[in-house]
Simulated assay, not measured.
Amino acid sequence: MMNSKNLAKSGKEPNQIEPVKIILADDDKDDQELFKEALDAAEIPSDITAVDNGQELLDRLKDDAEPNPDMIFIDINMPVKGGKEALREIRSDQDLKDIPAVMLSTSGHPQDIEDAFSHGADLYVQKPNSFAGFVLILKKVFTMHWAKALMNPLKDIFFLSDKNISRRD
């Protein structure tokens, strides 16, 4: 929490929200662009870095010159190093294990969801078929993040898709 003394030092206006630092690991450039556009449409102040695979994600996270992000979004199916493997490595690293990790996939297969949960993901998001669905999901993800609901995720709210989100709200 920033008090008025720290606020004066930071040079920020009191009503300015600090952007959420995000790393998106997704090999599909169109999906990267869609994600960024949906964040903008959801009016989520963010500073996003996109990488093309799990190995680039790990390299970025382990780069001491780069601060850890507030959250990472990881596509499950990527070349070089897939999302599940990258997640396992992140969760086994003392310096990285507490970064909230959201798995992204077109799959809603129960085994993929179970694997992501058991390997320590904080949330599993099925990529929606529409832009409006993506905006809705991102709003929900960040509402949960800001409410600290992504810490120690509960199994019954672990899987989000644009088909089940409206039933929960």
Rank of each mutant, 00 (worst) to 15 (best):
M2L: 09
M2I: 11
M2N: 06
M2G: 02
N3V: 01
K5G: 11
N6K: 15
K9R: 15
S10W: 11
G11S: 09
N15K: 15
K21S: 12
I22Y: 07
I22C: 05
I23G: 03
D28G: 03
D30A: 13
D31L: 09
L34P: 04
F35C: 01
K36F: 14
L39T: 06
D40F: 15
D40V: 13
A41L: 13
I44C: 05
I44Y: 08
I44H: 06
D47L: 11
A50T: 13
A50P: 00
N53I: 03
Q55K: 07
E56G: 03
L58K: 02
R60M: 08
K62S: 09
D63P: 04
D63R: 03
D64I: 02
D64G: 07
A65S: 13
E66D: 13
E66G: 07
P67R: 09
I72T: 09
I72S: 02
F73D: 06
D75F: 06
I76D: 08
N77E: 12
M78F: 04
V80C: 03
V80I: 14
A86Y: 02
I90E: 02
R91H: 06
S92E: 10
Q94S: 13
D95I: 10
D95S: 05
L96T: 03
I99S: 02
L104F: 01
G108S: 08
H109G: 05
Q111T: 11
E114H: 10
D115S: 12
A116K: 07
G120V: 10
L123G: 03
Y124F: 10
V125S: 03
K127A: 11
A132M: 13
G133H: 10
F134R: 09
F134G: 06
V135K: 08
K139N: 00
F142S: 00
H145T: 00
A147E: 08
A149C: 00
N152T: 12
P153A: 01
P153E: 05
P153H: 03
D156Y: 12
F159A: 02
L160S: 04
D162R: 10
S166K: 15
R168I: 12
D169R: 15
